[in-house]
């Protein structure tokens, strides 16, 4: 009986869908716009990666991704993203845990979460200049340290290389980790700790046997998200590094702005495709882990 009662009104409500042809007209502007400015650019990258300069299919662009300097750039990009993701994940998780132990709905937690929301978006040129003002060659901290007999750049200026980029990226990775990881930590119930204790478990056992395994997929997933975030970042590195192209996004800048080497006009597109593939793989793993997390901490 109940089934009939719910089925009947649904059919009435569904009828307008069948007269959909004229209704489709209403979505034409949206789909036309997205086609021109999103779908076509994506296809340009994908098809261009396999197109020869004079037209026609070629694997030359993709094959030249194996060139030494491009492989090195991908390697450095991955190192930078992995390092900044790991540092960001560890410190972000610590900060998130510190927030969870604070009073729920308290001022501290509200202020820090709001600040993290802002700082996670904070990247690009302004972030680069913030660090130039801090530990640039005439930065506040550099001058102070040099005055007190410690030259941070005694062994060369590392700010414009991978260690410096990692440090700068950490500045937006930690807040992002807090935002992504906080919901998982909130899903941990105090009862689980009480249950562990009433069964005679120690704090160490609680973290390694109960909370650790529960949080592991969430932590790993968040780290992957941070990796993708750092891997796609361009503006910060572009503003900091003006000489050379250590990482892939800067290699693509080089391919876009410099005089095109004969026969390599589409190399930039091949590198772009490589980036998309790395990000897609990482994001797929992320969504798989996300599902695993939802089982216990959703």
């Amino acid at each position: 009986m109940a089934e009939i009662a719910t089925a009947a009104p649904q059919r009435v409500a569904r009828r307008p869908r069948l007269r959909g042809a004229s209704a489709l007209l209403g979505t034409v502007p949206f789909f036309a716009y997205v086609t021109i400015f999103l779908v076509i650019p994506t296809l340009v990258v994908v098809i261009g990666a396999f197109a020869a300069d004079a037209g026609g299919f070629t694997l030359a662009n993709v094959r030249s991704l194996g060139d030494e300097y491009i492989v090195a750039a991908f390697g450095r990009s991955i190192t930078l993203s992995a390092a900044s993701a790991l540092i960001g994940a560890v410190f972000g998780a610590l900060l998130a845990y510190a927030l969870v132990t604070a009073k729920t709905g308290g001022l501290l937690r509200r202020v820090v979460t709001a600040a993290c929301g802002v700082l996670a978006q904070f990247g690009g040129v302004t972030l680069a200049f913030a660090f130039l003002a801090t530990i640039g060659l005439s930065g506040f901290l550099t001058l102070w340290l040099t005055e007190h007999g410690f030259d941070p750049y005694a062994n060369g200026v590392w700010l414009f290389e991978l260690p410096g980029l990692t440090l700068v990226y950490t500045y937006f990775q930690i807040p992002l980790m807090v935002i992504v990881f906080l919901p998982a930590l909130d899903g941990i119930r105090p009862q689980w700790r009480e249950a562990t204790e009433s069964l005679g478990g120690t704090t160490w056992q609680y973290w390694t046997r109960v909370a650790g395994p529960l949080l592991a997929p969430a932590f790993l997933g968040a780290t992957l998200l941070l990796f993708a975030n750092a891997f796609s970042a361009y503006a910060t590195a572009a503003a900091l590094v003006s000489q050379g192209s250590p990482i892939v996004p800067l290699q693509i800048r080089g391919a876009l702005t410099s005089e095109v080497v004969l026969g390599q006009a589409n190399l930039g597109k091949a590198m772009a495709l490589g980036m998309v593939i790395v990000v897609a793989v990482v994001m797929t793993l992320y969504s798989l882990l996300q599902k695993r997390t939802a089982r216990w901490l959703g």
Binding site: P41, T42, V45, G48, F231, V279
Partner: peptide, 17 residues
Amino acid sequence: LPLTIPAIVLVVGLAPV
């Protein structure tokens, strides 16, 4: 979709557009 396409990649495709 734009979440999975880095801005630097989008620029490469947007140049001809």
